[in-house]
Design a protein around this nucleic acid. Structure first.
Lengths: 347, 347
DNA sequence: CTGAAAGCGCTAACAG
DNA sequence: CTGTTAGCGCTTTCAG
């Protein structure tokens, strides 16, 4: 089943078939019709490798996944369906224009990452590459990609926003919205548990909390903000400290779900009932968030949408359809998932 | 960067380079050395498409993922890192021999699934295909694959074990082991919550429970076994029924984690403390299992190992290394994850 | 608007 | 043991 079969059936030259299949100009309607009939009735699909070899696009998008992170998630049992959602989002776009997704593992601290990556690009020649964290911020990876002239999209980058296509969510705004959600429920004394301050994510989420408080004209007391480190344990400790130092608090917003789960645990130990006595909110919608008692109000990262945006920028035929500057940073809308851990302020 | 560059640098013909790269026989050590030096110093890697087009292997394994199931998991928030673990397992094998993984979405109830799949095979020509549930048991998919002569591996098949390479875990045995685990903890009156009896998985897990009870000389009372349907809610209901009909029970083994989580919930409502008053065990190691209070003792499906086994069977150079019959059904070892929800029988 | 010829980078078949 | 010559199925010149 080759282009010759289609050409023979349509009674035209292979070049004409090629023209129709590529939507090239200067094709008479009748020729187009003949070719299309022949192609569909034969169930014909062009060979990816022949196309790629002949100089057309490879129709391939590579997703670079970090090996260590995958192993870690997997061992810790904290794995989410991040990759599944990412691939799904990218595939829904890619399949429309007959592009394909290749998944590759990267050891982000391998000694010959550079060589491996170059060899990979030389071997599969993807049209574009999707970088997932932590490789979204790996300068060497980006250098190699730049050198090869391969476009890339970075999911959730932390810095150097002028490189590649940056696709992200607005964490600061999401944190602001979550805080506003608590305020709307009547809370006006809201505690906050940060992540490690070295992380940009921690700082953005804290800023969002402060934004919302300021917007509502609420003054944040110094002892309402407690430092955590994104772990369950730090949430439990933070809850105890908050209870002691700021018993007036009626809601706690933690910088991620693990921490929020820890807060939940700490609250239970202190005899506080959630959400009757205390509302608790998290961030990330990690796998545990839907299963705690009560289940956790949190922010969901729109991973599939981010991947879709990435694909749209990397795949030329989709890229052309984009409104606005295709190189601009993309901010994808997130979701606030209201569950049982937040409720109206007790009075 | 082509084979000509390498040949030029090594001062040999392109065929010699090809020979070395393909580990063909009849190559003098000196020639091999020259070529290898040239190739590595140039960071050369053969073009996938050229190889594939020239008739060598495409070095490609396709993973067929069900679109509906992905969407459903994603929407329900019950998504696990199944796909991530699967791909990781397959990739760890594939990368050793420079094979690549392509992910494709399949609508298992699409009207033109057959045509789409044929076109896909024609277009990418994978060496082998990995079928994930529910497509592991899709006869039409297997028919197309057979017709195309493309080998395929089925992850967790339910029937027709003579088709493709079947890679699975021994659910009956796992259920037997979990039951034996409870018995070893001193429990001798153990309740069981089934899944929908129409499912093979439900029947296998129930059989395993009965095996272990019989082995230990314990007679299963009729009212110890309650039918559930794999949902949280059915677990809660089952717990209530068990408590009423068989209060002598000191442990409950549920056919999956959602159900076990429901049992946990039901026990709490009945004032039973887990594991002090009652031990609870699940099956699957779903994302929620590690986050419940107490966290759930369960069986982990060895998804990565299953994918690795699949890859080994589909990738010829790995296949040759296999001991034993490469076509035989593969049973991969599972894990019993003992967490806090099971403990010694109260007395 | 359409077609013939050349060649992408590799492997296979066939010499030497 | 090594090299030469044809393609694989397409797209890209370049001619009509």
């Amino acid at each position: 089943m080759t282009i010759y079969d289609v050409a023979a059936r349509a009674g035209v030259s292979i070049k004409s078939v090629s023209r129709v299949l590529n939507n090239e100009p200067n094709v008479s309607p009748s020729l187009r019709a003949k070719v299309e009939e022949a192609a569909t009735s034969l169930g014909y699909r062009r060979s990816l490798s022949a196309r790629s070899l002949a100089g057309a696009s490879s129709s391939l998008i590579a997703v670079l996944v970090d090996a260590d992170l995958t192993i870690e998630h997997w061992k810790s049992g904290r794995g989410s369906d991040y990759l599944g959602r990412l691939e799904f989002g990218a595939l829904m776009e890619a399949r429309q224009v007959d592009y394909h997704l290749m998944v590759e593992l990267v050891d982000h601290n391998s000694a010959d990452l550079e060589r491996d990556l170059m060899a990979l690009l030389n071997s599969i020649r993807p049209e574009g590459v999707i970088l997932t964290p932590p490789n979204s911020d790996n300068a060497m990876v980006m250098d190699v990609l730049d050198a090869a002239g391969t476009p890339y999209a970075r999911i959730g980058p932390e810095a150097a926003f002028d490189r590649g296509y940056c696709v992200e969510m607005d964490e600061r705004r999401a944190a602001r919205e979550m805080t506003a959600h608590l305020i709307a429920l009547g809370h006006d004394r809201i505690g906050f548990v940060t992540g490690p301050i070295a992380y940009g994510a921690s700082r953005r989420r804290l800023a969002g909390y402060r934004d919302a408080m300021a917007e509502a004209g609420l003054e944040v007391q110094a002892n309402w903000v407690v430092e955590g480190d994104f772990t369950f344990r730090s949430g439990t400790v933070a809850m105890e400290r908050l209870h002691e130092a700021a018993p007036e608090i009626t809601a706690v917003f933690a910088s991620n779900d693990d921490t929020a789960l820890g807060v939940l645990h700490g609250a239970a130990r202190l005899g506080l009932s959630v959400p009757a006595d205390l509302s608790v909110a998290g961030f990330d919608d990690s796998p545990g968030a839907g299963f705690s008692t009560p289940d956790l109000t949190t922010i969901r990262q729109p991973v599939a949408e981010m991947a879709a945006a990435a694909a749209q920028r990397l795949i030329p035929p989709l890229r052309r359809l984009l409104a606005g500057d295709p190189n601009a940073r993309v901010i994808v809308a997130h979701d606030l998932i209201a569950r049982q851990s937040t409720a109206e302020r007790p009075r």
